[in-house]
Simulated scan of single mutants.
Amino acid sequence: MVVRDHDALAAFERIYRDNVGAITRFFARRCVDPQLVGDLTADTFVRAMTSFATFDAARGSASSWLFGIARHTFAAHAEQSAKGGELVRRVGGRRELDRDELAELEARIDAERPGRALLERLAELPELDREAIELVHLGGLSPKEAAVALGVPKGAMRTRLYRATARLRAVVEDDEVEAR
């Protein structure tokens, strides 16, 4: 169901404005193609708009809900790319970005270079640990919001973050030892 009610539309617009930057940065840490970052961001908000009636603020914040949708959007993109369907999807009626939009997304992608480097280091950690660190330390979600986005118990998130941070420190220390 698409958002139609005026109050719901206004609420969705607030959620969009409050979160579009964070969702764009989420994709900019994963992609270096501005068109793809724009497409994935747009896809995330289209999915959010069509499922807005199911959003329940009592279960978690709008940010955690959107990051959950963004994770699924990126997973679908990765699966489609692995199957070779990316070119067909990208050419299939997508609006090309204008120069200003491209420049803005390129700037965001450049700004996320340290985040991409961190994600590369995180690659040695289990997937859920990587995502927990990213959502909290790069995405700005609280541990409670990250737990909702990842679909894990809220009480376990702090422990997961502590362990994941310790593992990440070990990876960074190993990298530093090897560099000497």
Rank of each mutant, 00 (worst) to 15 (best):
V2D: 10
D5G: 04
D7P: 00
A11Q: 13
F12K: 09
R14E: 15
I15H: 02
I15N: 00
G21H: 07
A22T: 04
R25I: 08
A28T: 07
R29Y: 01
R29S: 01
L36G: 00
G38M: 04
D39M: 11
D39A: 02
L40E: 04
F45I: 09
V46D: 15
R47P: 01
M49L: 12
T50C: 11
S51Q: 14
A53N: 08
G60W: 04
G60K: 08
G60N: 11
G60A: 05
S61W: 10
A62G: 13
S64P: 01
S64T: 15
S64R: 07
F67M: 13
I69W: 03
A75C: 09
Q80Y: 07
S81L: 14
E86F: 06
R95V: 06
E96T: 02
R99C: 05
R99V: 10
R99Q: 14
D100G: 01
E104I: 02
L105Y: 04
L105Q: 03
R113L: 14
P114W: 05
A123I: 15
E124V: 10
D129P: 00
R130G: 01
R130N: 05
E131H: 12
E131W: 05
A132Q: 12
E134Q: 08
L141Q: 04
K144Q: 15
E145D: 15
G151Q: 12
V152Y: 01
K154Q: 15
G155C: 14
G155S: 09
M157I: 06
M157S: 02
R160Q: 10
Y162P: 00
R163M: 10
T165A: 12
A166C: 02
R167G: 01
L168G: 05
D174A: 15
E178W: 12
